[in-house]
Design a protein around this nucleic acid. Structure first.
Length: 283
DNA sequence: ACGTCCTTGATAGTTAGACT
DNA sequence: AGTCTAACTATCAAGGACGT
């Protein structure tokens, strides 16, 4: 499920105070980049197949293609501050500040653990940012912009220290090159899509497109597409009364068998079981 | 960085049938 | 009628080797 964030005029960023529910929701994604700071409580944060236990003081980095969702511990619900910002904010700045957000999910740790010096510094900046956002004094936009730049600079130090510049540039270029394909897939996963479509769009050979995919996001083309489709299926199972077969066809599967197979593989239960489980939990 | 070619393995789609 | 799976074949994606 894609979430759209509306930014105010001249302010391509916002901060949100948010407490996730204690049930695992479907993954979502969005175009803005995201940094989260756990203020209180406990819970979990899921990124694709990765799962992090969350405690107060943890910081999380989210790029604009990785599927993610947070979940609260029912005993002690977690509360977060999330900063969302449009990558274009760095257009006039050093683009390398975006590098922490351009990562290969398979090898990347989204969590900066509480108690580390950098997490403490980031936490303090989050609180300053929130204060500026709420008070709206004169110059607050510039202040927030400045704080955001500090946050991104700290992230760059944290993640970029061990990465050679050459490698960082390569990742940056791959990411930019792949963006149109990722956008197209997020918009059109309900249609039959083949690697060849993507290769045409990127003006690359199918082989090169395939390798670019794997190198950049650590997932194969089909794997990424199937995850988008199953995620949409989960959403429809929860939010509609449509028969499973209709949902299967609406999500881009051409027949039911691959749908059932993929669903069980990714979610662990059959579609109907998933629907029943979630309905039961929310009663 | 990108393309071509190749093999291997995975997945899509079909059909048939069990179960509720 | 709707949900789900097993067994099957055809097709496509993955990924490596190698050339430019």
């Amino acid at each position: 499920m894609e979430i759209f964030y509306e930014f105010e005029k001249d302010m391509p960023f916002l901060i949100e105070d948010w407490t996730p529910i204690s049930m695992v929701e479907t993954f979502h994604w969005h175009t803005p980049l995201e940094i989260g700071y756990c203020v209180s409580g406990q819970g979990w944060f899921y990124f694709g197949d990765k799962k992090y236990r969350v405690q107060p003081g943890d910081v999380f980095v989210v790029n604009n293609m990785e599927r993610h969702i947070a979940q609260s511990d029912p005993e002690d619900p977690s509360r977060y501050l999330f900063i969302f910002f449009d990558p274009s904010i760095m257009d006039q700045m050093d683009k390398e500040l975006l590098l922490p957000f351009i990562y290969n999910p398979a090898q990347f740790s989204n969590q900066i653990p509480a108690g580390t010096r950098i997490a403490d510094e980031l936490g303090a900046l989050f609180l300053q940012f929130q204060q500026e956002y709420n008070e709206r004094s004169v110059g607050c936009k510039s202040m927030m912009r400045g704080i955001l730049l500090q946050i991104c600079s700290l992230l760059l130090r944290h993640y970029g220290n061990n990465t050679p510049r050459k490698e960082m540039n390569r990742v940056f270029n791959s990411y930019n090159k792949l963006q149109p394909a990722l956008s197209l897939m997020k918009e059109q996963f309900r249609e039959p899509l083949e690697l060849e479509h993507i290769a045409d769009l990127l003006r690359l050979s199918p082989s090169r497109a395939r390798h670019l995919f794997k190198e950049t996001i650590g997932e194969g083309f089909k794997e990424y597409l199937t995850h988008l489709r199953i995620n949409e299926a989960k959403r429809l199972l929860i939010t509609s009364d449509l028969p499973v077969l209709d949902i299967c066809l609406q999500c881009g599967f051409q027949s039911q068998t691959p749908f059932y197979r993929s669903f069980r593989h990714i979610v662990g239960v059959s579609p109907q079981q998933y629907r029943d489980q979630v309905t039961e939990m929310s009663v």
